[in-house]
């Protein structure tokens, strides 16, 4: 097998290797779904980086916890449970229209897709608003002590994911309204895929920030 490289190198400067077509791929599809699309993989790549970022924040939270005898520290209030839990519920519920618009997108049903996307967008804006209220529900300013800083860090880091997903879904919704070429449906399905991740990765963060102080 190495004979070719060996002899040809001795022959000196080589010309290009001619390419001889033997297969024709012009009938391959140009719009495909799920992991057959590069943007799906790109999304997974960003998910990995974002999950790593959140894990750094959560790990810092537990690391700082070890510096305190009581958690939250003395004279620091527990975070409220009400708003954050409502916010969590709204987020999870927003996955229902998300799932529905993804399913409609795979059926190329424009009307259903757009309808459910609007529902999802509205719910995600509500969730974003609730998340902004959650910062108040932490009952402590970010600069009060290290507990406050790490709690804010976890909530804020995830907030950037939530905001990005909400705005992305809004953008897609607007695009889908105007257009109906088949090529945008896979993007819509990926947006749903990202939303599942965004909500799933919030759950351990929620537990860490709102429940752990009540347990330790």
């Amino acid at each position: 097998m190495t004979v070719v490289g060996d002899i040809s190198a001795e022959a000196g400067r080589q010309a290009e290797r001619p390419l001889r077509p033997v297969v024709n791929v012009s009938d391959l599809p140009s719009v495909v779904y799920g992991s057959r699309v590069v943007t799906w993989w790109g999304t997974v790549g960003f998910m990995a980086a974002e999950a790593a970022t959140l894990s750094a924040c959560v790990a810092s939270y537990y690391y700082v916890l070890r510096n305190f005898e009581s958690w939250p520290p003395l004279r620091t209030a527990l975070p409220d449970l009400f708003i954050p839990t409502i916010s969590l519920i709204v987020l999870i519920l927003a996955l229902v229209p998300t799932y529905l618009f993804a399913r409609a997108a795979k059926r190329f049903d424009k009307r259903a897709t757009v309808r459910w996307m609007w529902v999802a967008v509205v719910m995600m804006f509500i969730a974003t608003g609730l998340r902004l209220m959650e910062f108040g529900a932490l009952n402590v300013r970010w600069d009060a002590n290290a507990y406050a800083s790490v709690a804010w860090a976890v909530v804020f880091a995830h907030f950037t994911l939530l905001l990005a997903d909400t705005l992305e879904t809004l953008l897609f919704t607007v695009i889908m309204q105007r257009r109906d070429p088949a090529r945008y449906y896979p993007g819509v399905a990926e947006d749903a895929f990202y939303s599942y991740f965004m909500v799933a990765v919030w759950i351990p963060c929620y537990v860490t920030v709102y429940l752990v102080p009540r347990w330790v």
Binding site: A56, C57, V64, W142, N145, A146, Y147, S149, A153, A157
Partner: peptide
């Protein structure tokens, strides 16, 4: 994440690394 925490300690007085407030 670390450099953002450092920037925030310096800019908006978070306490990630300030031991007097429980940071490390």
């Amino acid at each position: 994440t670390a450099s953002a925490m450092l920037a925030m300690d310096r800019l908006i007085a978070t306490q990630f690394f300030n031991y007097t407030e429980g940071g490390d």
